[in-house]
Design a protein around this nucleic acid. Structure first.
Length: 431
RNA sequence: GUGGCCGUAGCUCAUCAGGUAGAGCACCGGAUUGUGACUCCGGAGGUGGCGGGUUCGAGACCCGUCGGCCACCCCA
C-alpha cells in the first residue's frame, strides 16, 4: 500500500476521543485561571541552542531525541521537546520577570522515542511555571494547583504524589561523587544500563527498575545526607505547608529528574493504572535556569502534565465530564422545493435557538433512508419537509426517542410554530 | 537504540498437511404508494501491510522492510 500515512508516533486524535481532551482543557483553563495563572502561547520551534543550554547537553533528550534541522539560512532549529525552556526564553525576551509571574501553556512537544502506551513522538503537555519567588510556599502552591486539577478531573484517587529534594547544584555534585564512588566498587553487580549511566548520568541509577540494582542501592549513600541546609529547610517548610493543606505525599529519596536544570524540590504525580508510563505530571524548582539562559537571576518552579496520559486516565476511569456533543434535530426534505424551504427554515432556527445542534441532511435519498440517518445520528427529533408540507406551509415534527417509555406521535404544524414545538419536545425529554 | 507478540473486508476476528478467502457488526437496496429503530430477504466491499524467496501452486513456510501493541530504555 503506497498510501501516505501519519508519521510514526504522531497520532490523529479522533472525534471519539476529543471530548476527553476538551474536558481536560476546559478544566485546566478554569482551575489555572482561578489561581491567577495567565496563558502564554509559545512557538513550537526554537533555536536548538536553547534546549542544549537548558535541558543539558548530555541528557538523552538532547543527545538522541530531538527533531533538529537546519533552517534555510543555515540556523539549527528544533521542534520543542518540552515547554519550560521556551517559556523561560519568552519570559526573558518579553521582560516578564520584573514581578512574580504565573504562566501556563499547552501544546505539542516532540521527542524521537519508540512509541508505546502513554508515549508518542508528538505528544501534548500542559506546563505551569511560576517565576520570581524563591520560597517554598510557591512550590506548595504549584502542588496545590495540580492537586486541585486532579480533584476537578475526578482522578484524585488514581494518582499519588512523590516528593524529594535534590538540593543545590553543589550539594548534588558532592552527592554524585559519593554515589559514583560507591557504585564503582560494585560495578560488576550493576545491570548493563546502569553501568552506562554510571558514566553519563549516575543519579538516574537511583530510579532504575532493576531489582538487583535497587537492592545494591540500599547500601549506597543517600541524597538527603548531602543536602545543603537551605534545601533541607525549604523542603521541611514545603512538607509542613502540604500537611497543613491536607495534601498527602510520599517522600521518595530516590526520585530524581532527567533534565539538568532542576534543583531543590522535585515531584511527580504517578498512577498505577497506565502501565509503564505512569508519571502523569512532574516538575520541580529550577532557580538557575533563567540566569543560565541569559536573563537576570530569577528563581522558578514549574511542572508539566502529559495530556495523552491524563486522557488515558480519564478514559480508564470513565470520566463523566467528558461527553460528546449530541444531535438534537435532524432535518429531512424530499424534492428541490422542500429542500430550499427546509434550508431556509433551518437557518432561521439556528438563529433563534443557537443552543441546539441541528444536522441538515445532505446527499439526497428517500425519506426512508434519510430517517435512517436521522436515527443513527442520535437526534432526538426529526423535522420533515416533503411536498405536502411545502404546499401547506407546514413541517412535520417527529420525535425519534421514547420519553418515559412512550414515544410521542409525529405532528404537522405551521412553520411558524416549529420553535415552540421543538422547545416542548426537547425540554420535556430532558426532564 | 533493544526485546516479545502481532499485521486477512470500514471495525472485531475466523478458515487452511500450503491449492488463489469467510463470519459478525457497519454500509447499500428491498419487504406497495413519503417515515427510522426490531425482523426477514438481497447486495456491494479484500492484488490477505509492502518487497523478495521456497513451491507446480502461499494469506498461510523463509528473509527483508514498514507499521501496530507491550516492555526495556527514556520521560510527561
Amino acid at each position: 500500500m503506497s498510501n501516505i500515512r501519519a508519521i510514526r508516533g504522531m497520532n490523529d486524535i479522533l472525534p471519539v476521543d476529543t471530548p476527553y481532551w476538551q474536558y481536560l482543557e476546559r478544566t485546566v483553563e478554569r482551575v489555572l485561571g482561578s489561581y491567577g495563572y495567565g496563558e502564554i502561547r509559545l512557538p513550537v520551534v526554537e533555536q536548538t541552542e536553547l534546549f542544549k543550554r537548558s535541558i543539558g547537553e548530555v541528557t538523552d533528550i538532547v543527545e538522541k531525541e530531538m527533531y533538529s534541522f537546519d533552517d534555510r539560512n543555515g540556523e539549527s532549529l528544533t521542534l520543542r521537546p518540552e515547554g519550560t525552556a521556551g517559556c523561560v526564553r519568552a519570559a526573558i525576551q518579553q521582560g516578564l520577570l520584573g514581578v512574580p509571574q504565573r504562566l501556563w501553556y499547552a501544546g505539542p512537544m516532540f521527542r524521537y522515542e519508540r512509541p508505546q502506551k502513554g508515549r508518542q513522538r508528538q505528544f501534548h503537555q500542559i506546563g505551569v511555571e511560576a517565576f520570581g519567588v524563591a520560597t517554598p510556599d510557591m512550590d506548595a502552591e504549584l502542588i496545590l494547583v495540580s492537586a486541585r486539577l486532579w480533584r476537578q478531573l475526578g482522578v484524585e484517587d488514581s494518582v499519588e504524589l512523590q516528593l524529594n529534594s535534590i538540593g543545590s547544584p553543589a550539594a548534588r555534585q558532592a552527592y554524585r561523587s559519593a554515589l559514583v564512588a560507591y557504585l564503582e566498587q560494585h560495578r560488576e553487580a550493576l545491570d548493563e544500563d546502569s553501568q552506562r549511566r554510571l558514566d553519563t548520568n549516575p543519579l538516574r541509577i537511583l530510579d532504575s527498575k532493576n531489582p538487583d540494582t535497587q537492592a545494591l542501592l540500599n547500601g549506597a549513600p543517600e541524597l538527603v545526607a548531602y543536602l545543603d541546609d537551605e534545601s533541607r529547610e525549604d523542603f521541611d517548610r514545603l512538607c509542613a505547608l502540604l500537611d497543613a493543606a491536607g495534601i498527602s505525599y510520599v517522600i521518595n529519596p530516590r526520585l530524581v529528574r532527567g533534565l539538568d536544570y532542576y534543583n531543590k524540590t522535585v515531584f511527580e504525580w504517578v498512577t498505577q493504572r497506565l502501565g509503564a508510563q505512569g508519571t502523569v505530571c512532574a516538575g520541580g524548582r529550577y532557580d538557575g535556569l533563567v540566569a543560565q539562559l541569559g536573563g537576570k537571576a530569577t528563581p522558578g518552579v514549574g511542572f508539566a502534565m502529559g495530556m495523552e496520559r491524563l486522557v488515558l486516565l480519564l478514559q480508564e476511569i470513565g470520566a463523566a465530564g467528558a461527553v460528546a456533543a449530541t444531535v438534537d434535530v435532524y432535518v429531512i426534505s424530499a424534492g428541490d422545493d422542500a429542500q430550499r424551504a427546509a434550508l431556509a427554515a433551518t437557518e432561521q432556527l439556528r438563529l433563534q435557538m443557537p443552543e441546539l445542534n441541528i444536522i441538515q441532511h445532505t446527499g439526497g435519498g428517500s425519506i426512508k433512508s434519510q430517517l435512517k440517518k436521522a436515527d443513527k445520528s442520535g437526534a432526538r427529533v426529526a423535522l420533515i419537509w416533503g411536498e405536502d408540507e411545502v404546499a401547506a406551509g407546514t413541517v412535520t415534527i417527529k420525535p425519534l426517542r421514547e420519553q418515559g417509555g412512550v414515544r410521542q406521535a409525529q405532528q404537522s404544524l405551521p412553520v411558524q410554530q416549529i420553535q415552540a414545538a421543538l422547545r416542548a419536545a426537547l425540554v420535556s425529554e430532558t426532564e
